[in-house]
Design a protein around this nucleic acid. Structure first.
Lengths: 209, 209, 209, 209
DNA sequence: AATGAATGAGCTTTCATTCAT
DNA sequence: GATGAATGAAAGCTCATTCAT
């Protein structure tokens, strides 16, 4: 007994990738799923909610990784852990970001999207929480500098990986895994090392001029 | 005699920023430009061509954002300079977020845009170049750590500010200048200080397990 | 064991009053009754039959409104009695306005309703009868002018109160009891005093030109 | 050169009478008018506004009569003038009332209808104004009792004629002009004479019992 | 060049009704 | 009797585009 709700979500996911959101109609979705158009509205309040469900499904894996991150506290190197996190966020969002952006290109969908997120108490801050907790824990273990603010650092990592994915997708950069990982490694390296000169103590030097 | 072609483009640009592409109708554009709907089709083959013209103009402007940065080498504190840069990128992108999103929503527009950018050698890497040059110069002056890769660092700064702007725009966060600047300051602070513990030498410690 | 047929009818009645017919769906009804949508079709041939059953019940009740009025003959003041009557008619109809409107909206329902009313000798003239009898009795007691036709007067009172209720309901006027009573009082006062000049004898003066 | 806006209104008017509102679709209207469906939305904001326009067109005549009523001050007999007014209101609303009621059976149309009325500053009080002014003027001339409130009296007349029309339409009473005029004559007679006993002075007697 | 009325295909959404369980 | 997932035929409305003037 096939679950039509799942079938609809899967068909939407498939069509979203081949056609894009702007040209995707509920008729296409129904045809693609092999069900009546009306059934969509039995399982989802409206088209926006269906699209949102697709995005959620995709993001779920990322969310799990971030939530389980605190379990990694003290294991491996920090750099290894962070690279893994950034890679997960990157991969989890590479295909989703254009869909989300598409929704924001449509005023009506945009508004509805924000409503749904409010209803379900979702938002990127929620997703980042696990990362923030992890960083704070590593900081307490002395594996991270006491000078940084875990929340700000988590935000930086999040923003970099999301925007990388978005940028690569928008510019259609080659995205073989080796390149992605090398790039991420560079970013993490930069964030770990810090840009201030090596004699720094967390205070920023004035120009000597 | 005002040039109606220009007037139409300007109105489209304005409306694209405030309303996004998906619900922007030729009627809206005509009304916004104060001309008849039919006139659009005298000046442009179709709606897509008009939109394309507008987006192209925006992309042309983007690369100028960071051109003047190298002039700041050695002046002020690094932190001050970087905060100013991030703020500039943030503000410059905040308003074109709906246009960027629109490109994700319309596959044909997206593809044409990429072709043009390739032809004319545009693209974010170009825009970041000024920032990279600046960072390298400061590094030579000893005002930045020798351990970082200027290109990677420039990328980090770029990605963070763009994605901040997108996030704030799309999630309809409050964006008064004070909040934006505080946020940016936190990010720069994190990047300057680095996340590795204070005895770091650029090498990453293993977990002591 | 509660009788689901009755439960469905009650829920429909309630919803018809608050929401009107046109947007009242079988889903709403089922939800309101706490049963499955399909069950409606076990108890009623189709939606029309269910609605019909409900409207019929309302019409049955309406004629009782004025039955007790003749009992008031000679008691209180006429004005008090009439104000009470108008208020009763007003209140009794205020809540069924959406149902009356629904009959105008659905031709089939309208026709069936008329047939039933003819068959069973229902109708507003029947309902007004009590009022007419009352007025005639008061006229015989000398408490009402001998110049009026009790039937016409009863009709006037009836029409005014019904239409007041409709108007207030449809225009979403504020309808606190004080306002309603003041309004009714004005109408009764007008009807009691009569519009002809005070030297009137029931005959209408010509303009003196 | 036929005016399509008028053609659409006329077709709607025609179809409204034969089919009723509940089953009247925009497709039917377009077909009936011989134009494209989209054209309706070029001339009217939505279906509600079109329907409303039809009602307005019909009511316009009534409105004119009421507004010109003050010109009749002092001419003919009061009774003649009032009978003419009530007859005009009755005739002008006989076919309109069911349409208006139908709109109120549909929650969405109801709300939209009230919006439109607010936008255009319409409402029954506006229509009654002319009648109120007329009554007040006749009162000053001594042709109407000084004991009545012109506003309340105007309301009574209005409510009676509207509800008569509605009642006759709903009950499908015979409505040949002779019957209608006789009925109206009875109502006016009642209102003129007043219901209080002939020795009245405008004060209401207590029951002597 | 400029207008704006007119088109018509296509969109999302609604909803009475059916039917396997 | 009772369920609720599933249907599919509309419904109201949108909008890029055309064309007579």
């Amino acid at each position: 007994m096939p679950d039509n709700r799942e079938i609809i979500i899967e068909a939407t996911q498939r069509l979203l990738q081949s056609h894009g959101l702007a040209r995707l109609t509920t008729r296409d979705i129904a045809r693609g799923a092999g069900v009546a158009e009306g059934l969509i509205y039995h399982h989802f309040k409206d088209k926006a909610e269906l699209i949102f469900e697709v995005v959620l499904e995709r993001v779920r894996n990322t969310k799990d990784v971030l939530q389980n991150l605190p379990l990694q506290v003290g294991t491996n190197t920090i750099k290894e852990n962070l690279e893994e996190v950034l890679h997960t966020i990157y991969r989890g969002h590479y295909e989703i970001v254009p869909i989300i952006c598409s929704m924001f290109a449509d005023r009506r969908l945009h508004i509805r999207m924000l409503e749904i997120m409010k209803e379900r108490n979702l938002g990127s801050q929620k997703a980042i929480e696990g990362l923030t907790v992890y960083l704070a824990a590593e900081q307490r273990l002395g594996r991270l500098s006491g000078n940084i603010n875990p929340q700000a650092a988590a935000n930086c990592l999040w923003l970099i990986s999301i925007q990388s994915a978005m940028n690569d997708n928008l510019m259609e950069n080659a995205v073989n895994d080796t390149d992605v990982r090398r790039q991420i490694s560079d970013y993490v390296q930069t964030l770990m090392a810090g840009m201030a000169p090596s004699d720094k103590t967390g205070k920023i030097k004035k120009a000597k001029k």
